[in-house]
Design a protein around this nucleic acid. Structure first.
Length: 511
RNA sequence: GAUUCCGUAGCUCAGCCGGUAGAGCAUUACACUUUUAAUGUAAGGGUCCUGGGUUCGAAUCCCAGCGGGAUCACCA
């Protein structure tokens, strides 16, 4: 039974027994009251020394430097790391030296969570530290923690960089890699910044169904599940667009939702089966207004996060300073291919694709062909934030027709670092036009496009009651976070990215 | 889904023209009451991802599977 434990794991289980034999509960139930944290002590001790004489903090033991009758150790709490100084005669002032000789030196390990009390001082090498006068074990760790050492210059040694280890055991990753923790704090800061802006603009945060009987609002393959009581299929949403628009019909003039969406498609470093999109809709606005509003929203996020609009991404600098560049899709294609596709029909577009060596399928319509050209020749060129505007009607079934140009719709996508970050429309609110667009999608479906949209009759009914002219947008929160935290993989900005199950999960050992 | 690389101690890795395994950190023991990648001495620790094959003999060569990375395709 115990044969699958490593030497170190067996030893730690023995220590657990020895602690109990000494009358020490390795997992005490009572509250442990702290009155400081690592960051607070390091920031404020120098100018307020009198207030750091009676300090209690708790955290995980990260390293120990044993000097015999005294030890230096490092503990880590949610705010950072702090050196502690544990001296035999200070934690064991009397005859009984058990706490130091046995409990501290033999039974407590790196990775254990402990609480310590003492006073702050500065060592002769100048490091602010806590001189411990008493200590208590709060949770014994039974698995050894991978040790990452860092020198004074910040160089890491034996850093755990194996993505499989880090994603499967994110809890360990978060303990030992401070920059990972920082990325996730920034993710929350990004969301908080956006939420504040939207709330200040008077929008209402709402929740809409994740389980949908018609997976609408985007063209993507859905996950399907089954509801037992209703005995019917249900889909995990691929978007929440149609529900948010129903709320605009209902009279809310601005709604938003940070939505987990689900798409049953390939996985790679920019795609996870579940991902987060912010969608928001504002009544009586159009896509021009939305460009201005969204660029300000993003500039504010950069400022809130870094105090500057310029963000470093790999070897690039991305500048979120408003206003962002605006280019129509046809201008963009003309600029990057030299070809003016403005007046072309499907056949001519097909020839252009052939000429440019772009792979096309017979099922692709005019809109899809244009999208292919843009994707292959233009998209990657937009490193700085750029709005691409005025898309072909065929690929935008939920978007209002362009007010002046035939065949186009009032849509923009925001490109940053060669990737789509946001997608927005003047929302289609003409119920008859919307019905026809859905029917076009149906034809695409019959032609073999398995991603074409389903018709949502209840959504059409809602539009028939009248939806005000509305601007709407979807912003990929994971990708935005990648941009703003200098990460190249979506897995780095999701706590628990999707992984294949482990062959022999340790979690099943107990069974 | 395709191609390609990788899977050795708790962690980071070496070993690979085939002779059943090594280092550093971690662990254990001893020394050291202001160290900081602490140091010094000694010790223990491994189904070399799994399953087949070739061979007297496989961590090493071959095949298949599982898991991961990268690139490509699809997509956000």
């Amino acid at each position: 039974m115990s044969t699958h434990f490593s030497e170190q794991e067996l030893l730690r289980r023995q220590k657990l027994t020895e602690l109990k034999a000494l009358g020490i509960d390795p997992y005490p139930a009572d509250e442990f009251k702290v009155n400081a944290n690592a960051a607070d002590i390091k920031e404020n001790y120098e100018r307020d020394k009198l207030n750091y004489k009676d300090i209690t903090i708790a955290g995980r033991l990260m390293s120990i430097r044993d000097m015999g009758k005294a030890c230096f150790a490092v503990i880590q709490d949610a705010t950072g790391r702090l050196q502690i100084y544990v001296r035999k005669d200070d934690i064991c002032p009397g005859e009984d030296k058990t706490l130091y000789d046995t409990v501290w030196k033999k039974l407590i390990d790196i990775g254990d969570i402990i609480g310590v009390e003492g006073y702050v001082f500065t060592t002769k090498t100048g490091e602010i530290s806590l001189h411990v006068t008493s200590l208590k074990i709060l949770s014994k760790a039974l698995k050894p923690l991978p040790i990452v050492k860092t020198d004074d210059s910040g160089n890491s040694f034996d850093e755990v960089s194996d993505p499989e280890f880090r994603y499967r055991q994110r809890y360990v990753d978060l303990i030992i890699n401070p920059q990972v923790r920082d990325t996730f704090k920034k993710r929350t800061q990004i969301i908080n910044s956006i939420r504040t802006t939207l709330n200040n603009a008077g929008l209402l945060e709402v929740e809409t169904p994740i389980l949908q009987s018609i997976p609408g609002g985007a063209t993507a393959r859905p996950f399907i599940t089954h509801h037992n009581a209703l005995n019917m299929p249900l889909y995990l949403r691929v978007a929440n667009e149609l529900y948010l628009k129903r709320l605009i019909v209902g009279g809310f003039e601005g709604v938003y939702e940070f939505a987990k969406d689900f798409r049953n498609e390939g996985m790679d470093r920019t795609h996870n089966p579940e991902f987060t999109v912010l969608e928001f809709y504002v009544a009586y606005k159009d896509y021009n207004w939305m460009m201005t509003f969204s660029e300000q929203l993003l500039e504010k996020v950069a400022l809130d996060l870094y105090g500057t609009t310029v963000v470093t991404l790999g070897d690039k600098q991305i500048d979120f300073k408003t206003p962002f560049k605006r280019v129509t899709m046809f201008e963009s294609i003309k600029e990057h291919t030299g070809i003016d596709i403005g007046k072309m029909n499907e056949e001519e577009l097909r020839n252009v694709c052939k000429q440019l060596n772009i792979h096309v399928e017979a099922s692709m319509g005019k809109g899809k062909l244009i999208d292919e050209i843009f994707g292959a020749k233009c998209e990657g060129n937009y490193i700085q934030p750029t709005f691409i505007t005025d898309y072909p009607v065929e690929m935008s079934p939920l978007t209002k027709k362009h007010r002046t140009v035939e065949g186009l719709v009032e849509r923009f996508e925001l490109m940053i670092n060669g990737k789509e970050i946001a997608n927005a429309y003047s929302e289609l609110n003409d119920p008859i036009d919307q019905r026809e667009r859905f029917e076009e999608q149906l034809k695409l479906q019959e032609r073999g496009d398995d991603e074409a949209m389903f018709i949502d009759h209840d959504f059409l009914r809602a539009l028939e009651y009248g939806m005000p002219p509305t601007a709407g947008i979807g912003i990929g929160i994971d990708r935005l976070t990648m941009l703003l935290t200098n990460n190249a993989a979506i897995q780095e900005v999701l706590f628990f990215p999707q992984m294949r199950p482990e062959l022999k999960p340790e979690a099943q050992e107990a069974n």
